[in-house]
Design a protein around this nucleic acid. Structure first.
Length: 495
RNA sequence: GCUCCCUUCGUCUAGCGGUUAGGACGCGGCCCUCUCAAGGCUGAAACACGAGUUCGAGUCUCGUAGGGAGCGCCA
């Protein structure tokens, strides 16, 4: 006798209706996804990708995205982690349509199901001690089998004094569970491989695999999109869903994201709080764009706006293989979004970075202008801010190589002429200042490079900056003239 | 150990039985040019291995190897 899934019932039916393109009342086809992090740490790249796919899938199909905080492990769950998750999601714009729901607020409901299952004989009390279980597992291993519970209390058993029992779910003993996964295809598990898992601890609190099932059923989740690491939990969950007499959602198990060296993502790789990416000057949509391409693609397209992601995303195109996080590519993607962004939007972000770097954003050119001039030249707002230092404060010393090459005695004449010409420019604009520089070059019979480069070093302390007219506007007339004087003095001193 | 999953350039990927195996990041070269970027052009760089199915396999099947996950009174 096999425990085959009844694919025509529950959520599966609504899914079929959807893919068949039937137009049904909204409520009947409403797709509901959920992101269910446990607040035992910050929101990192891997979780964000999962949240993104859930959110995208819901948005794409006009469905709802639900946030559920799985905080049943009271030892490890913290409010700080909850806040970090909420803040991270808010920054990314991944707004839930419902929630956050907290599992710790649903204990009564879990209790209710457990009592019911106990009464129906779908669950039972087990009085094994942790020591016994450990021994059981060790012995099973030694015999070459899976370390698992042998079901010794499955058919009843005497309570043991001093042992608070756990509650176990009576998993079917034989037959198979078929998971029809949107990413993996059909995956079959033998019930014989599964044991009777604990659904409530001896202190009465429910455990993960159980609460997930109750919540997914109660919340009407139609699509469970989650990390690959849960694929092995799926058959147990399906069995419990059936015990609940609930429909089975459509599953989609996403591949893992590894570090750049192919090993598990860790701090060293960027498994840091997503909010750290904001501090590093990344745009939320850029991070999302980079992440959406990890495991998903749409032909050769690399850059997606949020709207495009929503319009194009689908589970069918999700890759089954794990991928590696590549910081360089993230930066490139970010740069593409930065270049496409309106300076007005970027300006406050630049101000934030400048302040963080100890500068006064008001002591220099308008931020919109600065960001417009520098956004091609830095991949993150942080880099852009770094390149903008000399427009908001005096630079310390000349870059040695640049000064050696361009601030030589031969340049003094040009610099003096430049000082005079620039002092006389009526309108301090890119065009007019650049014309003044070109004019000096022509009068002295020098190539533009021979004039612009010394001037550039005089203005910013090094041989790299935006176009010379732009640089002059950035520096401003007063500072420009002062800095030309400074360069002249430097040349004189070097003799 | 057992079960499940995965495998195209260094990395992200396209490919859905017939391709000079395409694109992107990164790397090299050239162009543009007042420097640096941006942009354009261009080069090197991949189907893990072995059988089978087929007229034909990166694409289908099965093995092998390698990697990953699960096997908790964690989630």
């Amino acid at each position: 006798m096999t425990e085959q899934l009844d694919a025509s019932r529950g959520c599966d039916r609504t899914h079929r209706a959807t893919i068949a393109g039937f137009i049904q009342p909204r409520a009947a086809t409403m797709i509901r996804t959920r992101f269910a992090p446990s607040p035992t740490g910050v929101l990192h790249i891997g979780s964000v990708r999962t949240a993104l796919f859930c959110w995208l899938y819901a948005r794409r199909h006009g469905g709802q995205f639900i946030l559920r905080i799985e905080d049943t492990d009271r030892e490890r769950s913290t409010q700080a982690s909850v806040d970090a998750i909420l803040d991270g999601m808010a920054w990314l714009g991944l707004r839930p349509d419902e929630g956050p729901f907290y599992q710790t607020q649903r204990f009564d409901r879990y209790r209710e199901v457990i009592e019911q299952w106990l009464a129906e004989g779908k669950a039972y009390r087990c009085y094994c001690t942790r020591e016994e279980l450990e021994q059981m597992r060790a012995e099973a291993m030694a015999r070459g089998g899976k370390p698992r519970y042998d079901g010794r209390y499955r058919n009843g058993g005497e309570p043991r004094p001093g042992v608070e029992p756990v509650i176990r779910f009576k998993n079917p003993l034989d037959g198979q569970v078929v998971v029809d996964d949107a990413v993996r295809g059909t995956v079959v598990f033998d019930n014989a491989e599964l044991d009777d898992l604990i659904i409530a601890r001896s202190d009465g609190t429910p455990t993960y695999n159980f609460t997930v099932v109750v919540d997914d059923a109660d919340m009407g989740i139609t699509h469970v999109i989650r990390g690959d690491d849960h694929l092995n939990n799926t058959p147990r969950q399906i069995n419990m869903l059936q015990a609940l007499d609930a429909g089975v959602p459509r599953y989609a198990h996403l591949p893992m994201i590894n570090g750049s060296d192919g090993t598990k993502l860790s701090k060293r790789h960027g498994a840091i709080n997503v909010l750290d990416y904001r501090e590093m000057g990344f745009l939320p949509e850029a991070l999302l764009n980079y992440l959406v391409r990890l495991g998903w693609s749409h032909g050769d397209q690399e850059i997606f706006s949020l709207e495009e992601m929503i319009a194009l995303f689908d589970l069918d195109e999700v890759n089954a293989a794990a991928s590696s996080f590549n910081f360089e590519k993230l930066k490139w993607v970010n740069h593409q979004h930065v270049m496409a962004a309106e300076p007005a939007r970027l300006a406050p972000l630049l101000a934030e970075q400048l302040r963080r770097q100890g500068l006064d954003p008001n002591d220099g050119p308008p931020l919109e202008y600065t960001v417009g001039a520098l956004k091609e030249r830095g991949q993150t707002l942080q880099e852009i801010a770094e390149r903008g230092h000399c427009y908001y404060e005096e630079f310390e010393a000349y870059d040695e190589k640049s000064a050696h090459k361009h601030l030589r005695t031969e340049a003094a004449e040009a610099l003096r002429a430049l000082g005079e010409a620039l002092a006389a420019v009526p309108d301090w604009t890119e065009q007019d200042t650049e014309a003044a520089v070109a004019g000096v070059a022509e009068r002295l019979g020098l190539k533009m490079g021979k004039v612009a480069q010394p001037l550039r070093v005089a203005l910013v302390g090094q041989a790299v900056s935006p176009g010379i007219g732009t640089t002059l506007v950035l520096v401003g007339r007063a500072r420009a003239l002062t800095r030309i004087e400074r360069a002249l003095n430097y040349i004189a001193a070097m003799g």
